[in-house]
């Protein structure tokens, strides 16, 4: 997947991020956040690079990266879909929406990212839009008052866009 490959150029980017923050151990979380924003996940080689560059043992960097739910060590899809499962959404049947999306994107078992690298599907505790429940977010854009059918339609639209790309920007 060319999309998710890392190269030496990437290390240069990471070094820049570290350069901006400095090497104190307290900078590790902000650095990981920026790196994740850039790559959509935390690749192993990059975590190792951060460890060497900051002089923090790799086991510690790995420990921090796995402690926080916001970090992902798996490549994320181009579209990250989060289904809210906070109390408000849950009582308004968010789980059938989640199941429908997983089915639509072909996810089984423990997999959260589709084989084509397009979709990552997760649940999230509460996005703070309870009045619009049930909601999902796709790359941080909120879709309100969802139903399984509506969610499937949105995914269809995204899949189509990938097959017949339209210039959007």
């Amino acid at each position: 997947m060319a999309l998710l490959e890392t190269t030496h150029r990437d290390f240069a980017n990471v070094s820049k991020i570290i350069g901006r923050h400095g090497k104190g151990q307290q900078e590790l979380v902000p650095i990981l956040q920026e790196v994740q924003a850039e790559y959509r996940y935390l690749p192993e080689e990059i975590l190792s690079h951060i460890s060497t560059a900051m002089g923090i043992p790799p086991a510690t960097v790995y420990g921090v990266a796995t402690f926080y739910a916001q970090f992902s060590l798996e490549p994320k899809g181009k579209y990250v879909i989060r289904v809210c499962d906070g109390t408000a959404c849950h009582v308004r049947h968010s789980m059938p929406i989640y199941e429908a999306i997983r089915k639509k994107t072909g996810l089984r078992g423990k997999r959260i990212t589709s084989a084509d690298g397009l979709f990552t599907v997760e649940t999230v505790a509460c996005v703070g839009a309870c009045g619009l429940a049930p909601v999902i977010t796709i790359n941080d854009e909120v879709y309100a008052q969802m139903t399984p059918e509506a969610a499937e339609m949105i995914i269809d639209a995204l899949m189509n866009r990938e097959v017949n790309p339209v210039e959007t920007h």
């Binding site: 975590l47 790799p58 086991a59 960097v61 420990g63």
Partner: peptide
Amino acid sequence: CGEVQGIGILDFAFRGANAAVMPAF
């Protein structure tokens, strides 16, 4: 391993019920 040997091979990873001590990755 971290304090006496200064190496830090082992550390905590994950959290909650999944928390475990392990080497990097």
